[in-house]
Nucleic acid binder design. Structure first.
Length: 894
RNA sequence: GGGCAAUUAGCUCAGUUGGUUAGAGCGCUUCGUUUACACCGAAGAUGUCGGGGGUUCGAGUCCCUCAUUGCCCACCA
């Protein structure tokens, strides 16, 4: 016995140690993983000798030193990590980076120069909201601190979180290059964002405008349309009197900003009033309103006439633009009514609404009220505050031209989306995209680099884009005012792929090192497809002239086991750190990979994780058994295939290598995982290892184990590396930088493999009879000489007694792939009679359906020859077995 | 209102361009400690693949239609 592993795999004993070793060895760096032969990945080409050489190199894996030449032929493979928000702990969504790690580890093993660049997001408004909640617990608000102090505290908060986050990401086994960790507020990133802003401005895509925006009175900031989430609710619908009109509104408090009454021009009731002005009695005295005709008005809604408040409703704003209406701001950025509201000035909106409605009723200006009006109302996505549409001066990005090449990139397939169904969704979204408000009035973020002219000299530019020094140079000391708005977080994170690479010096190829842009894959959540992915494409193409990534892989939401969203209030949240502590990191990684497909939500449960913990332990124990079998000082040689079982497992392994590789290439990670799972458990452990107990082939056992370790490594890096590290001949080498397995079919005999498959069939059928009849070590009889030769194997696998070769079979016919019987007396055969009849009937029905197929001229003529031939073979076999069964029944007096 | 997806075993889900008698994990029943593993092994039961129609030699897979569920987008005076 050369080596003894622990009885069960203990993740804690290995994980942090192995991670440290990986990182210290430089394996996570693109420069550091270049020590494989660049032969993998071309497995289907090249002459057999070459392939075999590569194969055995892989098997014995004498670390061959650097082979830069071979490696440089392969494209770099790059993933930029979607930067997690540095405002808390990782969650199952963050843990989904396992998909990225899987791709990175796979490409690394294939010999690509892989770069997985980690990042952290200051996450503007989101972090601000998180921190304000912290302040609230201390009974404070950000206004108590003031802008500068608040910024300092949030800065310290995110920086300390970054440390926590980093160690949590490391604990997940993510093989990112930490030396390139980039933060969204790194000066180099910010400077790229500033450059882009200036370039966009100079190209005419940036403008400043006083327009209607989605205003959050809590955040005291404007937000983009996409950051507003609508909720359905029931409110009163007030029918108020305006001179000759009765108008329906849910917002009577905005009436002080009404500048027109709109009707549909086709509405005969009002058509003659269009173009006139009306005098109306109002709460603050008489007012004058013009009557306009606009197609937007639905004559069937309410009274068919609508009050137009351009300052506080997006549709009214549009109508206002069409008719040149005055814009009267009635609600301020503080959420209180402005002085134009007269005696209502200073009231919060909700209070003003009640008061105005009350006063209107009192003054006889209320026609009636509908109390159960259902409509949807916008709330701020992040803080949940009711959105108040109002007008403010903001910086806007003109998107008409910018979006065109982005749409084209999706359309032509230059950017692939996995799953493909999101291609059209992206294109449609971009088609309908309107100018993007990139100003935010929050305190935590990247300040827009604009300085305004504060001098009396109007010949100077109104504003400049640049640094404070630029401002001094232009306006003189004290002659300027800095913009206080920040960028929308998505404006800066929309530049993430190139901003990061530019910051780390990996954007362009430089002497001796490759460029990593465009990146290979952007893997992220489906929920931020619009907010983030489309913006990265738009800005990436503008700034670099190239798409930022070639493939977008989207994952869905991780839900509980019944597909319900995880939430604290439901109490169904699974914490990745708790789960990894309990079951090992690999178990969580496997659970997040297998059974979850691209673009779809994936259910997760503790039970599922437990199942994959068992898988890890199974793998461990397979290794434990094999290592325990090996003689002292064993060193593996190229395996020779001797027995049918050897050929069988070699062929199973070859099929698995091909299909796992293809599955990963096609982004079918769940399937890749399942294939490895089944190869290990169903084929290797359940059959080959059991068979090997009869006649062990050490080299093949080791080789197959190593192949499985390699195939499983991208998903389950720890347990595979742990086992690898326990193999004495691998002492100086890590699995993480070993080569991805390639197929060697040169010496595999299909015929031999088939012989083992036939034996398996006999074994399974024999086991069934033994279990059903509770037999103990019965004798197996066969008319097949080669099966009889495998007596010891049959005895072991099938729990059989003797195995006898006979010219003529007798006993209970098994109906297996090769003729075999379980020796039985007449009594036993009689008790099996009904089962035999059932078997016969099933065989006959099956044969009949195959006959029907083959008698069908259409089938024979149209189906591929292989399918027809296959059908004939199956028919012949079914007939033969049916004959044997009916003979046996006949012998029983049937 | 527009769009996308899902509907397959008790549960959660696979099923790649149509081609063996439809699979997996978990759960369930029975048996079992044999050179690793009870975080194990063996055997077993459970499916008119949501309904209906069509195309095809052949449909879980393609088309139409209906139903149910979920998600996205838009609108809502």
């Amino acid at each position: 016995m050369s080596h003894q592993l622990d009885k069960a795999y203990d993740p804690k004993k290995y994980e942090s140690k192995l991670y440290q070793k990986w990182e210290d060895s430089g394996a996570f760096k693109p420069e550091g993983n270049a020590h494989l032969r660049g032969l993998v990945g071309d497995e289907m080409q090249g002459d057999a000798e070459q392939r075999n050489k590569a194969y055995t190199d892989v098997l014995r894996m004498s670390s061959t030193g650097n082979d830069e030449a071979a490696r440089s032929e392969k494209d770099p493979f790059t993933i930029i990590m979607p930067p997690p928000n540095a405002n808390g702990h990782i969650h199952m969504g963050t843990a989904m980076f396992v998909i990225e790690d899987l791709m990175i580890r796979y490409r690394r093993m294939q010999g690509h120069k892989t770069l997985w660049l980690p990042g952290m997001d200051h996450a503007g408004i989101e972090t601000q909201v998180v921190y304000e909640r912290e302040l609230e617990k201390q009974g404070k608000s950000r206004f108590d601190l003031g802008r500068d102090e608040f910024y300092r505290q949030v800065d310290a908060f995110t920086k300390s979180n970054m440390g926590i986050m980093t160690s949590e990401l490391k604990s997940m086994g993510f093989s990112t290059d930490w030396s390139r960790l980039t933060y969204t507020l790194d000066p180099k990133v910010v400077s790229t964002v500033y450059d882009t802003f200036k370039e966009l401005h100079d190209a005419g895509y940036i403008y400043r405008g006083n327009r209607i925006v989605n205003w959050c009175p809590f955040c005291r900031s404007a937000f983009a349309d996409i950051e507003v989430k609508y909720r359905e609710q029931v409110d009163p619908l007030y029918y108020i009197k305006y001179g000759p009109f009765v108008l329906a509104t849910v917002r009577p408090e905005t009436k002080f900003g009404d500048t027109a009454i709109a009707v549909n021009p086709k509405d005969e009731r009002y058509a003659r009033l269009i173009g006139t002005t009306i005098e109306a009695e109002d709460l603050n005295g008489p007012i004058t309103l013009q009557v306009i005709g606009d197609d937007h008005i639905d004559p069937a809604f309410g009274t068919g006439a609508m009050k137009v408040t351009p300052a506080h409703d997006p549709n009214d704003w549009e109508i206002g633009l069409r008719h040149n209406l005055r814009v009267i701001q009635t609600i301020g950025t503080d959420g209180l009514l402005t002085p134009v509201a007269g005696k209502y000035a200073g009231m919060p909106v909700a209070e003003a609404r009640t008061q105005v409605a009350h006063d209107l009723e009192e003054r006889g200006l209320m026609d009636h009220i509908e109390y159960d009006y259902t409509h949807s109302v916008g709330y701020h996505d992040r803080c949940g505050t009711l959105i108040e549409p109002l007008t403010v001066e903001q910086w806007w990005l003109r998107v008409d031209e910018l979006k065109k090449p982005a749409i084209k990139a999706f359309e032509t397939g230059e950017i692939q989306i996995v799953p493909a169904r999101f291609k059209k969704v992206c294109m449609d979204w971009l088609e309908n995209l309107r100018d993007w408000n990139i100003s935010r009035q929050n305190w935590w973020g990247i300040r827009i680099p604009v300085y305004y002219n504060a001098t009396a000299d109007k010949s100077l530019p109104e504003y400049i884009i640049g640094t404070e020094d630029d401002a001094k140079a232009t306006y003189g000391i004290g002659g300027y005012e800095a913009e206080t708005d920040n960028f929308d977080t998505w404006f800066s994170s929309g530049q993430w792929p190139y901003a990061t690479l530019m910051a780390t010096g990996d954007f362009d190829a430089q002497s001796g090192r490759p460029g990593f842009y465009p990146t290979s894959v952007m893997e992220t959540g489906r929920d931020i497809l619009f907010q983030w992915v489309t913006r990265m494409v738009m800005l990436g193409i503008f700034k670099t002239g190239q798409v930022p990534f070639k493939t977008v892989y989207l994952h869905g939401l991780i839900t509980d086991e019944h597909g319900k969203k995880m939430s604290k209030s439901k109490g169904n949240v699974l914490n990745p750190l708790e789960m990894t502590a309990k079951y090992g990191t690999d178990a969580v990684r496997l659970a997040l990979t297998i059974g979850i497909t691209a673009g779809n939500d994936g259910p997760l449960s503790e039970r599922k994780i437990e199942g994959y913990r068992n898988f890890c332990n199974k793998l461990w124990n397979v290794a434990r058994f094999i290592l325990g079998q090996l003689p002292d000082g064993y060193s593996p040689a190229t395996p020779e295939l001797h027995s049918p079982a050897d050929h069988w497992i070699a062929s199973r392994t070859a099929i698995a290598i091909t299909s796992v590789t293809q599955a990963i290439e096609d982004y079918r990670f769940s399937e890749a995982g399942q294939i490895v799972y089944s190869l290990l458990w169903d084929d290797f452990a359940d059959w080959y290892i059991e068979a090997s107990k009869v006649s062990p082939n050490h080299d093949l056992l080791v080789h197959t184990l190593e192949t499985i370790l390699a195939l499983a490594h991208p998903i389950a890096p720890f347990v595979t590396e742990a086992i690898w590290s326990e193999m004495p001949w691998r002492a100086d080498q890590q699995l993480i930088t070993s080569a991805w397995p390639i197929v060697d079919t040169r010496r595999t005999s299909n015929e031999q493999a088939q012989r083992f498959a036939a034996l398996q069939d006999v074994v399974m059928k024999a086991r069934t009879v033994i279990a059903e009849e509770q037999l103990s070590k019965p004798t197996l009889i066969t008319t097949d000489k080669s099966l009889a030769e495998s007596a010891d194997l049959l005895q072991r696998l099938g729990r059989l007694g003797k195995v006898e070769y006979q010219e003529q079979g007798s006993g209970l016919y098994l109906g297996a792939a090769v003729p075999a019987w379980i020796a039985a007396d007449a009594e036993l055969i009689a008790t099996r009679k009904h089962r035999l009849q059932g078997q016969l009937k099933a065989k006959q029905t099956y044969a009949k359906s195959l006959e029907g197929k083959l008698n069908n001229q259409g089938f024979v003529a149209n189906a591929p020859a292989a399918v027809v031939a296959d059908t004939r073979d199956r028919l012949a076999e079914a007939r033969q077995q049916a004959t044997r069964l009916s003979e046996q029944l006949k012998a029983l007096g049937e």
